[in-house]
Design a protein around this nucleic acid. Structure first.
Lengths: 227, 227
DNA sequence: CGCGAGTTTGAAGAAATTCAAACGATGTGG
DNA sequence: CCACATCGTTTGAATTTCTTCAAACTCGCG
């Protein structure tokens, strides 16, 4: 029997790349790791959380949506980061590949079994969850109390720490992603970045402007009044 | 030797009640529980986290400050809530009594010992941390993407669930506290509440306007476009 | 070469903030 | 008991910040 598709609604075309790519995941399987194409969903909100993931290469965004499509990205995950660790059986956010991304998989079930007997692993899980919590707490301060320039400065500094490619930040995500992470609009992010460039704090490389040179970390840090 | 006090700086008088009360905690000790006076500090950011706390009565705010005094309250804790559970050895936030508050104390050290041997407790700690994480994730969505009315509506609904005093919400916290929780200014919170009152969704009781009647939960929920 | 996707930039608009004043309710001292 | 200062809240008007709408720009790619 054929499914009758009454309307192909695309309620939230946050990034046009989402439109050109099948919405269902189409991962390339290889042992206990998967490769997701750019913009493919890794898991969705309220789906069963059967696996925990570790980024091998690429980048992942984790987000929540409001019914009208407003999106808040809670975190980006890059090489080495572990994500998808929920404690209930359901995912609380959606995770998508920002660019082509390979992840390692761990069956959650295995974790449960082990953590029942092995206190060390239980502690490890706790430590990971706590580090996510710390990130969320810092991010609440950013979202609730920082200005647009401070948010963008903090973002560049965060990415600089996590994406160390020797002087040049190769951002995998679009301005829209950054905006949805920082609680701003993409134009506001763009303006803030331009402003920092005019001040000689940042430099852009390439056409896409996804490669950023941090020319003056000191001065940039001055824009983020810290926590 | 006397400390030479060059200036008595009071950098962040967020609430005037803070000024009239000793800044150091002066808890009333009684077995394994403490009572803190209104506005007293329970612990400070970066202080050693030797205890975990459970609210017996009263209310607690947990917050972070920017250097210039901007404050983001990450959570309120009311009767029954557990807080102060950090995984590192230092607190990541400051906790203060919103009103006179009694808390139960658990030595953190004890937890560590037990969680080493007892998988059940380890899981319990993990579950509590995860529930804090879930709250933080939801709050990031609020802070990053909701309008002032949506934030205030969400706040009232949250408090209605947690402060169930039969129809009347007796808010322990000031407008400023609410504002710092919602990433707004106190005037904005006041305007939003007035707006909801004019719509017949809320009613105020008493002079202080800290008692709120939820007249139409349905309609209020309509203001919070949910996650 | 021209189209598409992502980014930048400008101008107008909306939302929240800032500054200011007024309003009870409360508590104090005369 | 009343006058008065204080505190938290509300309300108004002006201002700032961010957003919205629109257009232009750049580079990659067919």
């Amino acid at each position: 029997m054929l499914m009758h598709i009454t309307s192909v609604s695309v309620p939230h075309p946050h990034s046009l790349c989402e439109l050109g790519i099948p919405t269902e995941t189409n991962p390339i399987v290889s042992l206990s790791q998967l490769t997701y194409r750019k913009c493919n969903k890794i898991y969705g909100e309220k789906e069963p959380a059967d696996y925990v993931y570790q980024v091998k290469s690429g980048a992942v965004r984790s987000y929540k949506l409001l019914r009208d499509g407003r999106r808040q990205i809670g975190a980006f995950y890059v090489s080495g980061d572990i994500f998808g660790l929920e404690n209930g059986s359901l995912h609380r956010s959606t995770a998508e590949a920002v660019v082509d991304t390979t992840v390692r998989l761990i069956r959650r079930q295995n974790l449960d079994v082990i953590s029942g007997s092995d206190g060390a692993l239980a502690k490890h899980l706790l430590r990971m969850t706590t580090s996510n919590l710390k990130h969320a707490e810092d991010h609440m301060l950013l979202l609730g109390r920082k200005t647009s320039i401070e948010r963008v400065a903090a973002f560049i500094l965060e990415m600089d720490e996590r994406l160390t490619d020797a002087g040049i930040l190769a951002l995998p995500m679009s301005r829209r992603d950054i905006a949805d992470y920082l609680g701003l609009k993409l134009e506001t992010v763009s303006r803030a970045l331009s402003h920092l460039r005019k001040l000689g704090i940042l430099g852009f490389i390439g056409a896409t402007h996804r490669q950023i040179v941090l020319l003056d970390r000191q001065q940039l840090a001055g824009f983020d009044r810290q926590n």
